[in-house]
Design a protein around this nucleic acid. Structure first.
Length: 120
DNA sequence: CCACTGACGAGTG
DNA sequence: GCACTCGCCAGTG
């Protein structure tokens, strides 16, 4: 991987910075990774990941507050939902998450309802 | 080299 | 809130 230092590394590094109990969007990750306007690359990079990865990809959802994995109708979608709930993130029946509440670096209003980050 | 697809975002109706 | 369109880059046939 000497010359393989693709933007993927940056994306993975950014995703790893996401604190537990919080979620962020592809656009935010792309921006922090130094790839503004390239949210697709984030999704592409994450899709290249596999089980056992040290990257909390399940904390990355789309700007609509929905789990992207549900879109591809994959068993991973359910796994992501369980992982998020396990971290204290409430996931709607439709696979939607309240970005205003659990959005990392996205907290618009003064929401931040106490630290939902409870012991896991 | 060209065309299609894909874990997306933002804008419009 | 939902559906459609366009734009962005990378991988595959």
């Amino acid at each position: 991987m000497t010359k393989a230092s693709t933007s993927y590394e940056r994306i993975y590094a950014t995703v790893r910075k996401i604190p537990r109990g919080k979620v962020t969007t592809y656009g935010t990750v792309a921006r922090l990774a130094g790839l503004p306007g390239q949210p697709r690359l984030v999704g592409y990079a994450l899709s290249a990941l596999r089980d056992g990865t040290s990257v909390p990809w399940h904390r990355v959802i789309n700007a609509q507050g929905r789990l992207s994995l549900e879109r591809v109708a994959s068993g991973a979608g359910l796994a992501q939902r369980l992982r998020l709930e396990r971290e204290g993130v409430k996931v709607d029946a439709g696979g939607r998450v309240s970005l205003a509440t659990f959005g990392w670096r996205l907290a618009k209003t003064k929401t931040a309802p106490k630290a939902t980050t409870r012991a896991i």
